[in-house]
Computed example of a mutant assay.
Amino acid sequence: MKYLIFALYFLSFSLVAQVEITPVLKQQDSLDVDIFIAKNNFENTYYIKNNALLKIKDNETLSYSNIQLGQITSVNTYNPLKINVFYANLNTVIILDNRLAEITKLDFNTSQPYKNISHISTGFDNTLWLFNQDFQYLELYDYKTRTTRYKTIPVTSKVLDLTSNYNYCWLLTENYLYCYNYFGSVVYKLKNENYTSIKSVNENLVIQKDNSLIFYNYKTKQFLPINLPNMLISQFFVTNQILYIYNRKMLYQYQLKTD
């Protein structure tokens, strides 16, 4: 009985103790860009400035710009060999290689059937997750064969954000946060508690709410606040337990301890 009491005590203590995550600041660098996109394991930094996508490593700078397509809406670098640049105004996606050379152009205005796309994200193989705003569903689209592999059930509220890895896709709407597998089936659905942006960390998520970040642990179903100093969060990115935060002047690099 005594051992049971001690076990319950330490269990309850660990549960109470794990109420937030305190990251460790590893590095901070001045950065003057319009939009910070990502930084990967190879120390490549991606950002947008003057409507051009730039990739920087050491002293080398690569650039991609296509003014005929208008303003860049989003960039996804999850697969650095197949970077997706989305131009929502012209309903077009450009896929770039690791040198920012154009591989494929997808003009959904000329696709059959026509697709009116508002958000995109990377899928596995040669696929993209597309949110079709005419039908209010996600499509897993194969851009090699120009066919849709799977479709999700339509959603009823406005889409705020979309993120993915090779196994899952997360769709944030004004009402709910949805997680889908690569067959387009719902894995889980959570109420949106004023969330505005999401980034995947393996099966987990980092979620922005107002000017704060929350870590969602998929296995434990816990929402853990990330204890950060008071700062503006213009953009953030997460990879391999490293959290990057850009505040329009500085890029901060934090080590996350989520175990």
Rank of each mutant, 00 (worst) to 15 (best):
P225R: 00
Y143A: 03
I242Q: 15
H119T: 08
P113Y: 06
N165G: 12
L213D: 12
D142Q: 07
N192P: 12
Y46P: 06
S63V: 12
Q255W: 12
F124I: 10
A101C: 10
L160V: 14
T156L: 11
F36W: 01
Y182T: 07
C169F: 01
W170T: 04
P154Y: 13
L69M: 04
I226T: 13
L213F: 09
L8Y: 05
A17L: 09
L128V: 05
N79P: 01
Q235I: 04
D58C: 00
T239P: 02
Q222F: 10
T77H: 08
M250Q: 15
T45K: 10
D97K: 11
K55V: 08
S121H: 06
L172K: 11
N116G: 00
Q112V: 09
Y254S: 09
E102H: 11
N181I: 04
N41C: 03
V155H: 13
T147I: 04
Y114E: 08
N126M: 09
N98K: 12
T173M: 13
I35K: 01
L177R: 03
P225C: 04
A7T: 05
S234D: 15
E193W: 07
T152R: 06
I117C: 02
V159K: 15
N247T: 14
W170Q: 02
N230Y: 06
F108H: 10
Y78I: 08
D161M: 12
E174Q: 15
P225Q: 03
S74Y: 02
L54D: 02
N44E: 15
I103N: 13
K189Q: 13
R146V: 06
D58R: 06
D107Y: 14
F42D: 11
N240L: 06
N175F: 04
G70C: 00
W129N: 04
Y78F: 14
V75P: 01
D125V: 11
N51M: 01
Y150M: 01
N181A: 06
Y141E: 15
L138F: 02
I226K: 06
A38N: 11
L140A: 08
F6M: 06
Y150N: 10
F237R: 09
Y9E: 04
V19P: 00
S30I: 01
S234V: 11
I48V: 10
C179R: 15
N192H: 12
T45P: 05
Y246M: 07
I83R: 11
I72Q: 05
V33T: 07
Q133V: 08
Y64P: 10
V238Q: 08
I35V: 09
N44P: 03
V24Y: 11
D29A: 00
D134Y: 05
N66F: 07
L251K: 13
L15A: 01
N202Q: 07
S74K: 00
Y176T: 04
Y87I: 01
Y182N: 12
P23I: 05
E43G: 00
K219W: 03
L177F: 05
F223R: 14
A88N: 01
L31P: 12
N126H: 15
F135A: 10
I67E: 14
F86D: 02
N98M: 12
Y216T: 01
A7V: 00
E174Y: 15
N202T: 09
N204A: 02
A52C: 02
T61N: 08
N202I: 03
Q255V: 11
N116F: 13
L8P: 00
V186K: 14
S14W: 03
N89V: 03
L190A: 05
I94S: 05
L228I: 08
E43K: 07
